[in-house]
C-alpha cells in the first residue's frame, strides 16, 4: 500500500510536469520546476536570479499553465472522492455527482450568484457558497425521492437523479437567458461543459483546503463507510449512527462538489470511473480506496485536460466534453459487465 501510494504520487508529479510542458509554446520539463522554484524562493523573501528562460516562458509556466494543471489535479481528486463517498452512501456503484444531479444543483447556485448577486455578503466566497447550497439541495432532493420506508430504491435513485439534473440544468439556462447579460451566457456555457481554462492562482486555495480537510475527515469515517456499504441495518448493529453519519456525508459531498463546480463547472463521470478503477486495484476497504482514488482522479484529470488542450489545437476543448466522451461508454460497460442492472446494491 505505501509503495502504491508513493508510485501514484510520483506518477502524479510526472503527469503535472508533463501537463505543464504541453502546449503551443514548448517548455522543457526541467524549466518547469526551475521556474516554480524561482518563484517560491522569491515568495519566501529570498533573492533568486532568473535563469535561462525567456520572459514569455516564465509567464506561460507560472501564470497560465501551472495553476491550471494544479487545479485539474485538485478537481480530479475531489470529484473522485465525492464519487467514492456517494457510492458508499447509496450503496450503488453508479452514483456520481454529475449523474445524480448534484453538479447541476451546484451550477444553479453558482449561476444565481453570478446573475443576481445573491449571497453578496460572502464576497469572493459567494460563488462557492452558492454552489454548495445548490448542491446540498439537489443532494437531499434526490435522496428524498429515492427513499421509501427506510429503503433506497436504486432505479428511483438513478432516474430521479437524472430527472432532477435535467430540471436544474433547465433552471440554469433560464436564469442565464433571462438575466440579460451577454457575458454571463458565455461564462455559463463554459461552465455547463466543464472547463479549466483561465485558472488563476487565487482560485486554488479554497479547493485545496476543502479537499485536504474532506479527505482527512472521510479517512476518520472509513470504518463507518465500510459498514455503510454492507447495509444500513448491518452498519447500525456494528455501532454506526447511520442517520448522523449520512447527514455529515451529505454536507461533505455537497461542499466538495460545490467548491469544485464553482472553479471548474460540471465535469462529469470522474466520480463514476475513478472509484471503479480504484476498487479494481485495491478492493473496497475505504482506508485504501480514498487516498488511491484521490491520486488516480488527480492523474486522470491532468491528462484529460492535457488532451483537451492539444487534441484540436489551437482550438481548446472544454475538459468536460472529453470526460463525457470517455465516461458515457464506461457507464454502459459497467451496466453490461456481469449483467449488472442499476438495481445492484438495492
Amino acid at each position: 500500500m505505501p509503495v502504491l501510494l508513493a508510485a501514484l504520487a510520483g506518477l502524479l508529479l510526472l503527469s503535472i510536469t508533463f501537463g505543464i510542458t504541453l502546449g503551443p509554446v514548448d517548455i522543457a520539463p526541467g524549466s518547469v520546476w526551475r521556474i516554480a522554484g524561482h518563484e517560491l524562493v522569491l515568495r519566501l523573501g529570498l533573492p533568486s536570479a532568473a535563469g535561462e528562460w525567456t520572459h514569455a516562458q516564465h509567464q506561460i509556466v507560472w501564470l497560465i499553465r501551472m495553476p491550471r494543471v494544479l487545479l485539474a489535479a485538485l478537481v480530479g481528486a475531489g470529484l473522485a472522492v465525492v464519487g467514492v463517498t456517494m457510492q458508499a452512501m447509496v450503496r450503488n456503484p453508479l452514483a456520481d455527482p454529475y449523474l445524480l444531479g448534484v453538479s447541476s444543483g451546484a451550477s444553479v447556485g453558482a449561476v444565481l450568484v453570478l446573475a443576481y448577486g445573491v449571497l453578496g455578503f460572502a464576497g469572493v466566497y459567494a460563488l462557492p457558497l452558492g454552489a454548495f447550497a445548490g448542491a446540498l439541495l439537489a443532494c437531499v432532493a434526490v435522496y428524498w425521492l429515492a427513499h421509501s420506508s427506510g429503503r433506497l430504491l436504486a432505479p428511483r435513485l438513478i432516474l430521479g437523479g437524472v430527472a432532477i439534473g435535467y430540471c436544474l440544468s433547465g433552471v440554469t439556462s433560464l436564469v442565464t437567458l433571462t438575466a440579460g447579460q451577454r457575458e454571463l451566457a458565455n461564462a455559463v456555457l463554459s461552465w455547463t461543459l466543464g472547463s479549466l481554462a483561465g485558472t488563476r492562482w487565487d482560485e486554488l486555495g479554497l479547493p485545496a483546503l476543502v479537499l485536504v480537510a474532506g479527505i482527512a475527515w472521510l479517512l476518520l469515517q472509513a470504518r463507518g463507510l465500510n459498514a455503510l456499504l454492507a447495509g444500513d441495518e448491518t452498519a447500525s448493529t456494528l455501532g454506526v449512527d447511520t442517520t448522523r453519519m449520512r447527514r455529515g456525508l451529505f454536507v461533505l459531498v455537497s461542499l466538495l462538489t460545490g467548491v469544485m463546480v464553482a472553479v471548474s463547472g460540471a465535469i462529469g463521470f470522474i466520480g463514476l470511473m475513478v472509484p471503479h478503477v480504484t476498487r479494481m486495484l485495491v478492493g473496497t476497504e475505504h482506508r485504501r480506496v480514498l487516498p488511491v482514488a484521490a491520486l488516480v482522479g488527480a492523474i486522470f484529470l491532468v491528462w484529460v485536460d492535457a488532451g483537451a488542450r492539444i487534441a484540436f489545437a489551437p482550438t481548446e476543448l472544454p475538459v468536460g466534453i472529453i470526460t463525457s466522451l470517455i465516461g458515457g461508454p464506461f457507464f454502459v460497460w459497467m451496466l453490461y459487465r456481469r449483467g449488472m442492472s442499476p438495481g445492484v446494491g438495492r
Binding site: R91, N92, P93, L94, A230, E233, T234, R338, V344, G345
Partner: peptide, 18 residues
C-alpha cells in the same frame, strides 16, 4: 441479520471486501 450486505456481495459493481 437477514441482510447480508447486498451491496457488497452483489459483486457486479463493487469489487467486494475480502
Amino acid at each position: 441479520a437477514q441482510e447480508q450486505g447486498g451491496g457488497v456481495d452483489a459483486g457486479g459493481g463493487f469489487g467486494g471486501f475480502s
